[in-house]
Computed example of a mutant assay.
Amino acid sequence: MDRVRDGRRPDGRPRARAPLWTEEPVHRPRMPDPVRAAAVRAVLLVALTTTLAMAAVLLTLAGSWLAFPVLVATVAGTVATTWGVLDVWVTRQVWRQRHGVVSVPSSTAREMRRMRRPRYP
């Protein structure tokens, strides 16, 4: 019997099993709750609108009378989806502004400071 395959050490004791997964540190912090809620809403709206668009295409190909109402719902869903995606962007910006996320000055801002700095001979 092969010692490596039977799951035992050479001294006869069973080998310890390796864990199924190892936890890795997160590189980015978790999104704030309001931003995450807006993102979930936006993803649900995108999924619903995509489903409506596919239904409109299939109903049009089938020649069904339901194609027009579903097409109208798809247009309304597109407007709602655009609103939802913009809501994520605005919520993220508002959260950053209210909670004081430090921004790095751009190179143009550094250049303007450098130009205003007094020069000594």
Results as ranks from 00 to 15, higher is better:
Met1Lys: 12
Met1Thr: 10
Met1Tyr: 06
Val4Met: 10
Val4Lys: 01
Arg5Tyr: 06
Arg8Trp: 04
Pro10Phe: 13
Pro10Asn: 14
Asp11Ala: 04
Asp11His: 09
Gly12Asn: 01
Pro14Gly: 13
Pro14Val: 13
Ala18Ile: 02
Pro19Gln: 07
Pro19Val: 05
Pro19Cys: 09
Leu20Gly: 13
Thr22Glu: 14
Glu23Asp: 11
Pro25Gln: 11
Pro29Ala: 15
Pro29Ile: 13
Arg30Cys: 05
Pro32His: 06
Asp33Pro: 06
Asp33Leu: 08
Pro34Glu: 05
Arg36Thr: 09
Ala37Glu: 09
Ala39Asp: 08
Ala42Tyr: 05
Val43Pro: 02
Leu45Arg: 10
Leu45Phe: 06
Val46Gln: 08
Val46Met: 04
Val46Pro: 00
Ala47Gly: 06
Leu48Arg: 12
Thr49Leu: 00
Thr49Trp: 01
Thr49Ser: 08
Thr50Met: 09
Thr50His: 03
Thr51Asn: 11
Leu52Asn: 14
Leu52Cys: 04
Ala53Lys: 00
Val57Lys: 03
Val57Asp: 10
Leu59Val: 00
Leu61Phe: 02
Trp65Tyr: 07
Leu66Glu: 06
Ala67Arg: 07
Phe68His: 02
Pro69Phe: 14
Leu71Met: 13
Ala73Asp: 10
Val75Ile: 14
Val75Leu: 14
Thr78His: 03
Val79Ala: 13
Val79Cys: 08
Trp83Val: 09
Val85Gly: 08
Leu86Ser: 06
Asp87His: 10
Trp89Glu: 15
Thr91Lys: 06
Arg92Gly: 15
Arg98Leu: 13
Ser106Arg: 11
Thr108Phe: 06
Ala109Glu: 15
Ala109Lys: 06
Glu111Gln: 07
Glu111Thr: 03
Met112Pro: 00
Arg117Asp: 08
Arg117Ser: 13
Arg119Thr: 13
Pro121Trp: 12
